[in-house]
Amino acid sequence: MQTKVARGMQIRELGAEALKKVLLYAGLAAVGVVMAGPFLWMLLSSFKPDLELFAYPPVWWPKHFMLDHYRYAFLNVSFGRYFLNSFLVAAIATAANVFFTSLAGYAFARLEFFGKNAIFFLLLGTMMIPSQVTLIPVFIIAKRFPLTGGNNILGAGGTGLIDSYGGLLFPYLIMVFGVFLVRQFFMSIPRDLDDAARIDGASEFGIYWRICLPLSRPVLATLAIFVFTNVWDDFLWPLVITNSEKMRTVQLGLQIFQSQFLVNWGPLMAATVVVTLPVLMVFMLGQKYFIRGIATTGLKG
């Protein structure tokens, strides 16, 4: 008798437990729809012919999948060129950041030198300067960059780096945040390794290059992803520094499907899919690196 009652209670408890689980999943899924729904709508819209896109009553699921909007974005608007520009700038910026910030991170983590803490905290301090404060002076530096764009040695007379790859690139070359990220990691590598290497006659650069760098692939991946996506996603700087069509980046490119009164929605959604896809793919593949970048620094560009 008693065991029967106990079992009944157990089953009831299990039932409550299962119900709770179902409710939980329902809640999670509902939030998921809100978070992912807009992306799905973008994707569906990009495949719909205009007739379905602008139909009333609405056509929820495309009846005819077509790629015309993508074709338009790449043929009538030179989206391929914007893509190339964005990719070039982001790739070079990533390489420069990984090299220079890890080199400095190595010195701050593992070498002793006069003024180390003072310099380190000064660097930390510059991270608090909002980009909007430095925007105008950095623009002036670009404009007055000596011996570029028709400028003389004093940086006068021409347009400098305005509307050039150099201009697009140079504010991205080093992001101080990388120094902190890498330093943190380098400090955790045991010093016995470098002492052994030093006895074998390795130079400081050799220890950095042959021992520390190969051991820090995960953190360098985090850094690379952080830099690449930040450069790829940036809008304000390309807006300010470029003015010709051939120098546009993808984020700027998205602006040209609309005028004050009219928006070409189909091609705009197709182009947005294309712009979003690379970053989403990198995210899916390297999720843990993304999340770690945030968890360890709490920073997002």
Binding site: W41, D233, F235, L254, Q255, V275, T276
Partner: peptide, 14 residues
């Protein structure tokens, strides 16, 4: 996390 990794411009367009 999808909206976080998407650029501000892309999200604005959507």
């Amino acid at each position: 996390y999808l909206p976080v990794v998407t650029s501000a411009i892309a999200v604005s367009m959507i």
